[in-house]
């Protein structure tokens, strides 16, 4: 034992590992704990992240636009001298147009759902690595954003805020493995639980709707909405569409694979629903 303690490097590493495991246990139970200590660090790097994200998002959209417009490519070949200038103008215009469309759709969503108090936010970061599906938005407590507020786009439900700092907040998306949302099938009115998954197989980017009644008549193509149960997500927000129904004879419930309405790869602006569910419910 004494010899083990005398091997100081290993002893220090084991000690720090134990402290880190303890931190993991504590912060798993109290998700808001990170929010309290992240303040200064995120305050410094979130403006840089915002700038970087805007630039890389622009570059990504640029390639997306180019691949979509083959006639522009032909024109580019003919007008090599003017190509840079034209591309720049086109990208700027398309960017503005796309942004305008996205914001108009968000505004339409907000107007259609005028019972909801919402605030717009930009996505400024996504989690590193391949495991979790978390996004960072540029609104925080200073803008009235709080924990457990629902986050949506005009395409549907994005997720919920789980940590919030003064100027930014972290959103756990509905496709994250630790996310679960109470949902309802629009046509059949069957209730179930839409869970995200970390499985990188065929269901990557999909949700699983579990605990659906065995006698449920749901079919691929059925729309899934939030049920309003659970006091986090307002009722009636579009989650996605049933892609496949799994009916295992040994199970007591049916399961459905749901394709979310939101395109999480190209998400740029979101709306945070600031009103509580009590305020929304009639």
């Amino acid at each position: 034992m004494l010899r083990f303690i005398k091997n100081r490097p290993l002893f220090i590493i084991i000690l720090v590992s134990i402290v880190l495991v303890a931190l993991m246990v504590v912060t798993t139970k109290h998700e808001q704990a990170i929010g309290k200590i992240e303040g200064p660090l995120v305050y410094i790097i979130s403006p840089i992240q915002k700038a970087f994200y805007t630039v890389s998002s622009g570059i990504n959209n640029f390639f997306y636009t180019i691949s979509d417009k083959s006639d522009l490519r032909v024109e580019n070949r003919e007008l090599r001298d003017r190509v840079e200038e034209l591309e720049k103008e086109l990208i700027e215009k398309n960017e503005l147009e796309k942004e305008n469309n996205r914001l108009r759709k968000l505004l339409d969503f907000a107007v259609e759902n005028d019972s909801l108090k919402v605030t717009g936010a930009r996505v400024i970061g996504k989690n590193p690595g391949n495991w979790f599906n978390i996004i960072l938005i540029d609104k925080g407590t200073k803008h009235g954003v709080g924990v457990n507020m629902a986050v949506v786009t005009e395409q549907g439900l994005v997720g919920r805020v789980f940590q919030v700092g003064p100027n930014c907040a972290k959103v756990r998306t509905i496709v994250d493995g630790q996310s679960s949302v109470s949902g309802i099938i629009e046509r059949t009115r069957d209730n179930g639980l839409a869970k995200g998954n970390n499985d990188m197989g065929l269901e990557e980017g999909m949700c699983r709707m579990i605990y659906l009644p065995l006698d449920s008549d749901l079919k691929p193509g059925d729309k899934v909405l939030t049920s309003g149960l659970g006091e986090i997500f307002p009722k009636g927000i579009y989650i996605g569409e049933v892609k496949e129904v799994i009916d295992e004879k040994r199970d007591f419930f049916k399961t459905a694979i749901i394709e979310p309405g939101v395109d999480f790869q190209r998400i740029e602006e979101v709306l945070v629903i600031k009103s509580s569910i009590e305020e929304i419910s009639p």
């Binding site: 504590v26 912060t27 990170i34 992240e38 970061g125 996504k126 979790f132």
Partner: peptide, 21 residues
């Protein structure tokens, strides 16, 4: 990484420290 984008403090810290060691 944990503080900026993680949901649990220590996950990446432990992994990267052990890799470094």
């Amino acid at each position: 990484c944990d503080i900026v984008m993680g949901s649990v403090l220590g996950v990446y810290g432990l992994q990267y420290m052990l890799i470094g060691f």
